[in-house]
Simulated assay, not measured.
Amino acid sequence: MIFKERVQQEKQQPQEFKPVFFRIQDPEQKAALLQLVNDHPHIKIYDEIDSQLRELMKITHPTRPLSDQETREAIQKHLGSTSREEYGVWVYFPWLHKVVHIVDEDEYIHLRTSRNMHKITAEERDILKTKKIGVIGLSVGQSIALTLVMERLCGEIRLSDFDALELTNMNRIRAGVHNLGLPKVIIAAREIAEIDPFIKVTCYPGGATEENLDDFFSKDGQIDILVEECDGIDIKIISRIKAKALGIPVVMEMNDRGMLDIERYDLTPDYPMMHGLIPDIEPEKLRHLSNEEKVPILGPMVDMHNMSPRMKYSLGEIGKTITTWPQLASSVVLGGAMVADTCRRILLGQLQSSGRYYVDFEKLIN
């Protein structure tokens, strides 16, 4: 009974995913942070501001290594009259029960992207931090979202998925067992915040629907790219109708043979949806089709004739020996890399094409 009560209490806790910032040069924020840690003695405090300042001095003086004495002097000059404790920002992660001391936003971005230089220039980094990317579907989409964030290819990311994490998902979704039962959007949003608390994350835990797509695409500014990785045929089509109407490019990875789709509605407004492979059918009618009825529609969209032999075989086993199509972690991670690279080049004006492309390891390496 004790365990049951504790479990129910945990389930009733808010599913927080947004960090809380305390800049304690402000007396009110300092008092609020002290109140927080005093009221919750289980909160752990992490302060590695010195190591961040040393790194900052190192990358600011790239022509030669600074001695320990020179580093200390450079840090003190940089701090001026501000104490180490008051420098930067203290970030509280409610779901982790941790407070972490880090440099503030501009220096954080400078440090975290310093090893991207010059593959991504400072000017390109500053362009990318103004961009908004929407991701629908968080199986392949989780890997994509995390790669986008690690490479810092946007300043805002919108996540949409209706599903909660199940143990069977953990063959390709990066998550610990303590996350079982949590919405996939919350799991991804929390990890994003832990990587970069300054990136804005908006979650749609009910998934993408006709009712919320306007909000997803356009609230507080239009997204610059749609990454579509959902399972539902109706949302695949409806989201493209919306993207096409708004002139937003769509990128999709199919998780078999490294198949990547790019649809540049921003450059070619009349480009046929999914290269003309989407049939002329009302999306409303798709909701009521059986799996068997969906196959003739889905087949051309996913290029069924060119699927890997094992994926083709697996589709025939759905409802017999398996319940859904298989996905492998290696393919999901590859998809994250391909989509992130493609999004970066689209956002920076380095890629102009639409089309379907394959990065098939079995063909490339044999």
Rank of each mutant, 00 (worst) to 15 (best):
Asp163Tyr: 07
Ser160Cys: 15
Ser143Asn: 06
Arg172Ser: 00
Leu146Phe: 02
Ala164Tyr: 07
Leu159Trp: 10
Leu182Ile: 14
Gly181Met: 13
Val177Gly: 03
Val149Gly: 07
Lys131Cys: 12
Met170Asp: 00
Val177Gln: 09
Lys132Thr: 13
Pro183Tyr: 03
Leu138Ala: 02
Ile173Asp: 00
Arg152Cys: 06
Arg158Cys: 15
Asn179Val: 05
Leu159His: 08
Thr130Ser: 03
Val149Glu: 02
Leu128Asn: 00
Arg158Glu: 13
Ile133Pro: 11
Ile133Phe: 11
Ala164Gln: 14
Ile136Thr: 12
Cys154Asp: 08
Leu182Thr: 15
Asp163Met: 09
Lys131Ser: 08
Thr168Pro: 12
Ile173Thr: 05
Ser139Pro: 10
Ile136Cys: 11
Ile136Met: 15
Arg172Val: 03
Arg158Ile: 13
Gly141Thr: 05
Met170Trp: 00
Met170Arg: 02
His178Gly: 09
Arg172Glu: 00
Lys131Glu: 09
Lys131Tyr: 08
Leu180Cys: 03
Leu148Ser: 01
Ile133Trp: 08
Ile136Pro: 10
Val177Ser: 05
Ala175Tyr: 02
Cys154Tyr: 06
Met150Tyr: 12
Leu148Val: 07
Ile173Pro: 00
Met150Asp: 08
Leu153Met: 06
Lys131Ile: 10
Gln142Leu: 08
Leu146Tyr: 01
Leu148Gly: 02
Gly155Arg: 10
Asp163Ile: 11
Gly155Gln: 10
Val135Met: 03
Arg174Lys: 15
Val177Pro: 05
Ile173Phe: 00
Lys129Ile: 11
His178Cys: 05
Gly137Trp: 04
Thr147His: 01
Met150Cys: 13
Gly155His: 08
Glu151Ala: 01
Val140Tyr: 05
Leu180Phe: 03
Gly141Asp: 07
Asn179Cys: 12
Asn179Thr: 09
Gly155Pro: 12
Arg158Ala: 14
Ile133Leu: 13
Val177Arg: 11
Asn171Phe: 03
Lys129His: 05
Ala175His: 01
Ala164Phe: 09
Arg174Thr: 15
Leu180Tyr: 04
Thr168Gly: 11
Met170Tyr: 00
Ser160Lys: 10
Lys129Trp: 03
Leu148Thr: 01
Lys132Gln: 12
Leu128Phe: 00
Leu138Thr: 00
Ile157Glu: 08
Phe162Thr: 07
Ile127Gln: 14
Phe162Trp: 11
Ile144Gln: 02
Gly155Ser: 05
Ser160Tyr: 15
Gly181Tyr: 13
Ser160Met: 15
Glu156Tyr: 06
Val135Ser: 03
Arg172Gly: 01
Arg174His: 15
Ile157Asn: 13
Asp163Ala: 14
Leu182Cys: 13
Val149Thr: 10
Phe162Gln: 09
Ser160Ala: 15
Gly181Lys: 14
Gly141Cys: 09
Arg158Pro: 15
Leu146Pro: 04
Thr130Gln: 03
Asp163Phe: 07
Ile173Asn: 00
Leu182Asn: 13
Ile144Gly: 01
Ile136Lys: 10
Leu182Glu: 13
Glu166Tyr: 11
Ser139Lys: 06
Ala145Cys: 06
Arg174Asn: 15
Asn179Phe: 10
Ile133His: 10
Leu138Met: 02
Thr147Gln: 06
Gly155Asp: 07
Gly155Leu: 08
Ser139Tyr: 03
Thr147Pro: 07
Thr130Ala: 01
Pro183His: 04
Ile157Thr: 13
Asp161Phe: 02
Val140Thr: 05
